[in-house]
Structures are given as structure tokens and as C-alpha cells.
């Protein structure tokens, strides 16, 4: 039997390097990914590496001289009171925005996870904030919170509360931006949670109901733990986005009033493109990058305690 097989399939001639390359799976794979990989390399990886170099240089982006300054930019970060302030604002913002968006998203998703008439209309409505551009979002909130003509103050006046300065107030502006970005990101959280909710088998709820668990207990002991992979994803994703907050601040307050809404990336932009301290800004970007990596790693490490993959 073995002899027959050997006779039927004589050993193939050893192919040359062209033949080997043509047969090689990895060569085919590289060919397929190369268009994307090259573009990402040029427009993604290269600037990242150039920024790393820049963070050890002094540059005003205009003059060609970019003297090497070693770790001076990084040391300067530690002594910059405005950078410390920006970190503080970013932490306050992140601490409110991430849980806020997750909570609102979860509540809306739970409300939309049922079969009633026109449910797809409601679901689309919940997601539509994601389709609104940040510019429109900024303009809407500027109007809504306007001191004289804004709908929010008009409503407050009706119930007997005097007009609030909102974005013009050092104590309120950051919270208005929190509310605005929660509104803008809720649609995203809703979609993620809704998809996860639909993956929770209905029999588990039925089994828990027969076991005597009331609706809130079922939500807490069955639904929430089973949503934990979605919660981890949202927590990481939203945290990374929160630490990089820029557009909304730029569009509404320009970091003001009196730097009250200057967050890390806004300060970075201000240093790079207003003050023309590009080297210093690059160092800031790398400091932020390290913080994001640490935060994300921390979240994944903590998640081992509360995330259940079924």
C-alpha cells in the first residue's frame, strides 16, 4: 500500500526562490496588506516617530533650527503649573464623563431593549447623536446655554431660577462640556449596550424569575455581570477619548474662561500652534500617551475581577 502511494506521488522537484515565494502564504499575506500597511506607515507611524524625536528638541515649527535639548521638555512639564491645572481638569472631566456616559447609555439601552411598536425609530433616535458632527454639537450647546437667549436659562427662569452663565463661568463651564459630550456619546454607548443586552439569553431571566428574583435583582445579578465585557470595552474606549478631549473645548470655550476648561490636549495644541513650543507640546503628547497606556493596562487588570466571558 505504502509502496503504491510512493509510486503514485513521486517527490516534487525542489522549486526555485520565485516558486517558493509564490507558494509562500506569508508572502501572499504581506502583498494583500501592503497597500494599507504602507499608508499607515507613512501617515501614522512616521509622524509618531518624528514627534518622539521632536520631544527632545526645541522647535517653533517656523525656523529650521531645532536644537537638541535632551530631557528638558519633559522636566519642564513637571514644573508647569498650567500643565498641572490641565491634568486636574482632564481628570475631573474623565471621572464624570466616562461613568456618566456608561450610565446614561445603559439606562437608555435597557429602555430600548424591548419589542414595542416603532422600536427601530426610537433606537435610531438614540443613536442619532453619533451622526451629529462635533461642530453642530458645539453650536447647539452654545445656543442652548446662552445667557440671554438660551433655552436652558429660559426654562430655569420659568421655574424661578435666575439665569446661569454656564460656559462663561469658571465654575460651570467644565460641567457643561461634560454634559455636552455625554449627550454626544450616549448613542455610541446605547448601541454597544443594546447589542450586549440582546445577547443575554431570555431563559436566564426566566430561570431567575422562577428562582424568585425580582426585576431589579435580576438586572443586578444576571444582566449586569453578563454585560461586563461591553462595560469594559466602553470604559477603555471612553477613557481614551476623554483623556484626548479637544474639539468640544476648542469649539465652545477655547480653554477658558480663565483656563477653567483647559484640558491636556487643548493645552498641548495651545503650546504647539499658538505659542509655537512644538518640542514642549510633543513631550506633553508622549506624557499623555504613557498615561493612556497605564490607564488602559490598569483597566484590563482590574477587569479580571468583574468581567465574565461566557
Amino acid at each position: 500500500m505504502a509502496g503504491q502511494d510512493a509510486a503514485a506521488f513521486p517527490p516534487a522537484a525542489r522549486p526555485g526562490w520565485v516558486g517558493r515565494l509564490r507558494r509562500s502564504e506569508s508572502a501572499t499575506g504581506w502583498m494583500l496588506v501592503s497597500p494599507g500597511a504602507i499608508l499607515i506607515g507613512i501617515f501614522g507611524l512616521l509622524p509618531v516617530l518624528m514627534a518622539l524625536k521632536l520631544s527632545f528638541q526645541k522647535s517653533d515649527l517656523l525656523t529650521p533650527e531645532t536644537p537638541w535639548v535632551g530631557t528638558r521638555n519633559y522636566r519642564q512639564l513637571a514644573d508647569d503649573p498650567r500643565f498641572a491645572e490641565a491634568i486636574q481638569h482632564t481628570i475631573v472631566y474623565t471621572a464624570l464623563f466616562v461613568p456618566g456616559t456608561m450610565l446614561v447609555g445603559l439606562l437608555v439601552a435597557a429602555a430600548l431593549n424591548r419589542s414595542v411598536r416603532f422600536i427601530s425609530v426610537y433606537r435610531t433616535a438614540a443613536y442619532i447623536t453619533m451622526a451629529v458632527s462635533t461642530i453642530s454639537e458645539g453650536i447647539i450647546f452654545l445656543w442652548l446655554t446662552d445667557k440671554d437667549y438660551g433655552l436652558v436659562n429660559a426654562t430655569l427662569n420659568v421655574v424661578g431660577i435666575s439665569s446661569q452663565p454656564f460656559l462663561a463661568s469658571t465654575s460651570q463651564a467644565l460641567y457643561v462640556i461634560v454634559a455636552m459630550t455625554i449627550w454626544g456619546w450616549t448613542g455610541f454607548a446605547v448601541i454597544v449596550y443594546l447589542a450586549a443586552l440582546q445577547g443575554v439569553p431570555v431563559e436566564l431571566h426566566e430561570a431567575a424569575a422562577i428562582d424568585g428574583a425580582r426585576p431589579f435583582t435580576r438586572f443586578r445579578t444576571i444582566t449586569l455581570p453578563l454585560l461586563s465585557p461591553a462595560s469594559l470595552f466602553l470604559m477603555v474606549w471612553l477613557t481614551i477619548n476623554a483623556l484626548q478631549l479637544f474639539d468640544e473645548v476648542y469649539l465652545t470655550t477655547r480653554g477658558g474662561p480663565l483656563h477653567a476648561t483647559t484640558v491636556i490636549v487643548y493645552y498641548l495644541w495651545d503650546q504647539a500652534f499658538v505659542q509655537f513650543n512644538a518640542g514642549y507640546a510633543a513631550a506633553m503628547a508622549y506624557a499623555l500617551f504613557v498615561v493612556i497606556v497605564i490607564f488602559t493596562a490598569l483597566q484590563f487588570w482590574l477587569s479580571r475581577k468583574f468581567v465574565h466571558y461566557s
Binding site: P201, E203, L204, E206, A207, A208, T221, I222, P225, L226, S228, H308, S310
Partner: peptide, 9 residues
């Protein structure tokens, strides 16, 4: 239940 409906977590 047919698919047991055990609480997976």
C-alpha cells in the same frame, strides 16, 4: 430548561 439556562457567571 431545555438549554439548562445556568447562570454562566
Amino acid at each position: 430548561f431545555q438549554n439548562y439556562a445556568l447562570y454562566p457567571h
